[in-house]
Amino acid sequence: MAINLTLELASGQSLQGAPLELLVNGTPVARATVDQQGHVTFNAKPGAGQLAVRVDRSILKNH
């Protein structure tokens, strides 16, 4: 099943390249990256549960 989203920040900043995770009941089930137009598509197995999206923080580096 494909879940398609378009993301836009109120500030107008681009989210291009941002890695995102799709969560079902708090558990990551799919990952995707925001494209140039702000679109992202998650490919996940069909099922029931509460959906959420978050930034994949694994790419963040400690400073």
Rank of each mutant, 00 (worst) to 15 (best):
L7V: 06
A52E: 13
G12R: 10
A30E: 06
G47I: 12
E21Y: 11
P19K: 14
S11E: 08
A52T: 04
V40A: 13
P28M: 09
H63C: 00
Q36T: 12
Q13H: 15
A18D: 09
E8F: 03
V24D: 12
M1E: 14
D35H: 05
L7T: 00
V34P: 10
L23Q: 12
T27F: 00
G26R: 05
L22M: 02
G47N: 00
A30F: 03
G38H: 07
G17W: 11
V29A: 05
R54S: 04
G47L: 04
S58C: 04
T6Q: 12
T6D: 03
N25W: 04
L5K: 01
G47W: 06
P46Y: 06
D56Q: 08
G49F: 10
V34I: 07
A2V: 02
Q16F: 03
I59C: 05
Q37F: 05
A2W: 02
L9W: 03
Q37G: 01
V29R: 07
V53H: 03
T33F: 03
G49K: 07
S11H: 06
T33K: 15
V24H: 01
A44I: 09
N4T: 01
Q37R: 11
V40W: 10
Q50G: 11
H39Q: 15
T41D: 10
D56F: 08
L9N: 00
E8V: 10
N43P: 05
T33Q: 14
P28K: 06
L9S: 00
S58A: 12
T41S: 15
L60T: 09
Q37T: 11
Q50V: 14
A10I: 10
